[in-house]
């Protein structure tokens, strides 16, 4: 997995999965749902995000519903990585299962919207180019590296099933 670089979108504490994937658009195709991602708290997000941009947030990012459309919407919009002080447990697992580099970042509060970040998710290195500052955080958990490196749970399951078929 190579490094990821992009601009920071900064959110506060407790951003829940309902605002990432509103129930009103559950039956709609992903591109329609994604257009309303974060609308309730940051109306400019979906229209202005650029592929590779990085979501930075406070505590408990992705709290609430198990809906996988939350990380799927972020991924659809091009989010390259997620950095938060802590995560809602199902969101965290879902995001990694879709292969989105999702790191714990205790210093998330030091990042300002629009900062240029470069992230090495395996090594746990975060560089803030705008402010010339380097951070070292916990890399992806070892037991999940294989899955995230494969691109997520689906490619990982394919590998596992084909290995079983070959043995």
């Amino acid at each position: 997995m190579t490094s990821i670089s992009g601009r920071a979108w900064v959110f506060g504490d407790g951003v829940n999965t309902d605002v990432m994937a509103p129930g009103l658009f559950f039956k709609a195709p992903l591109e329609v749902l994604a257009a309303h991602c974060m609308e309730a708290i940051e109306p400019a997000f979906a229209a202005n995000i650029v592929v590779g941009d990085i979501v930075v947030a406070g505590r408990n990012f992705g709290v609430g519903s198990a809906r996988e459309q939350a990380p799927m919407a972020l991924q659809h919009l091009g989010v390259g990585a997620i950095l938060a002080e802590s995560y809602g447990r199902i969101f965290y697992r879902n995001a990694l299962s879709f292969g989105i580099p999702t790191l714990l970042f205790p210093q998330a509060g030091e990042i300002v919207a629009g900062d240029e970040l470069v992230i090495d998710p395996l090594a746990g290195r975060i560089e803030n180019r705008t402010r010339a500052k380097m951070y070292t955080v916990a890399g992806l958990p070892e037991h999940l590296m294989a899955m995230v490196s494969a691109g997520g749970l689906m490619p990982y399951l394919k590998q596992r099933l084909s290995a079983q078929g070959a043995s």
């Binding site: 198990a66 809906r67 199902i90 879902n94 037991h143 997520g152 749970l153 689906m154 399951l157």
Partner: peptide
């Protein structure tokens, strides 16, 4: 315990979860 549909896919295929 609750999981997202992507991980429930893994459960349905393998009967296991980490």
């Amino acid at each position: 315990v609750g999981f997202g549909a992507i991980e429930m896919t893994g459960v349905v295929v393998t009967g296991e979860i980490w």
